[in-house]
């Protein structure tokens, strides 16, 4: 996978991955196809390929993350890139340096790819417009988390062998969720039907303008679902005005054992993690046969390798 074929140049010419809203269905499919090849690499004895040898990747995580950062680090290592990890607490941002200046310093150190996690929506766009390096969005505020969206698409496509015309139900805090947005944009482009479920305070009706359905009665939508994607619910820290209690949330929207019985036997249960067992999902359901939560993690590695490979080959 070292040679960039003409087909590849035709199907991918972006140096950055900022979100799924700006991608075409063909671009998304091309990433997923590229990930197929990398998933196969993961089954080999020697899991490393030289695709990004000599390139430097900076994991620049201004907001805390363990699983996404680790996944990117592993993906970069398997592509033979050199990896540097910078977190908010270890960067000069704590000394008042601006995001732009910090990023310019990274670029001056010949960082080829910057993977950015940031609490402000649009921060990756901000960097991408100002840097020659590739910028990969690893989650920006409530905006997008494109590699999570892609790994969810990949997992659905892998298990159900298609995405178009599937009924995908996303449950939880849609308003503040970048995972929800990237899933919505990606799923719609690939032809899925999307239903958003959650308290009316956390499911903005503006999403209906994109062609998604909204429901506040989970029991009504579970029987027709081909995929249920449950989002992590946060309450204590910042959501007290949005719903009264975790208990009431679970009662209304939690995927309990009882509710899981409403699902078709081949319906996939997904969760981007970390899971609140007993809140948005019962422990038995999370660990049950329909759950593909750990497949998502494994696929995340292949998808991130594909994204780094594609964007890393474009950087100017």
């Amino acid at each position: 996978m070292n040679v960039r074929s003409p087909d590849m140049n035709r199907r991918w010419n972006r140096k950055d991955l900022l979100g799924l809203r700006e991608l075409s269905a063909d671009e998304i499919n091309f990433i997923l196809e590229t990930a197929d090849a990398f998933k196969q690499v993961g089954t080999r004895e020697i899991k490393k390929v030289p695709a990004l040898r000599g390139k430097t990747l900076v994991n620049f995580f201004v907001e805390p993350s363990t699983r996404t950062r680790t996944s990117f680090e592993l993906a970069a290592s398997r592509l033979s890139a050199d990896v540097i990890n910078i977190s908010a607490s270890t960067s000069s941002l704590t000394k008042g340096e601006t995001l732009k200046d910090t990023a310019k310093v990274l670029e001056a150190n010949h960082a080829d790819i910057i993977v950015l996690r940031h609490s402000s929506a649009g921060a990756p766009q901000f960097l991408a417009q100002r840097l020659k390096s590739s910028v990969i969005n690893a989650g920006d505020g409530a905006h997008e988390h494109p590699t999570q969206g892609l790994l969810d698409l990949y997992t659905i496509r892998e298990k159900r062998e298609r995405i178009d015309n599937l009924n995908v139900v996303i449950v939880g805090d849609i308003l503040f969720s970048r995972v929800a947005r990237s899933n919505i944009f990606g799923l719609l482009k690939l032809g899925a039907r999307v239903t958003l479920v959650g308290p009316s305070t956390l499911v903005p009706r503006e999403f209906e303008k994109l062609g998604v359905s909204i429901s506040h009665k989970i029991d009504n939508v579970l029987p027709d679902a081909d995929v249920v994607n449950l989002l992590r619910i946060q309450h204590e820290r910042q959501r007290k005005e949005y719903f009264p209690s975790i208990g009431e949330y679970t009662q209304l929207f939690g995927l309990t054992k009882e509710r899981a019985k409403l699902l078709k036997p081949d319906c996939l249960i997904m969760h981007p993690g970390p899971i609140n067992r007993g809140v948005e999902i019962d422990s038995e359901v999370a660990d049950g046969l329909q759950s593909v939560i750990l497949d998502q993690v494994t696929n995340g590695l292949a998808v991130r390798m594909a994204v780094l490979y594609l964007c890393g080959g474009i950087s100017t």
């Binding site: 929506a121 649009g122 505020g141 409530a142 905006h143 997008e144 970048r178 503006e206 999403f207 994109l210």
Partner: peptide, 10 residues
Amino acid sequence: EGYWSTLLGL
């Protein structure tokens, strides 16, 4: 607060 804030997560 409207369509674009919703899409952009701002």
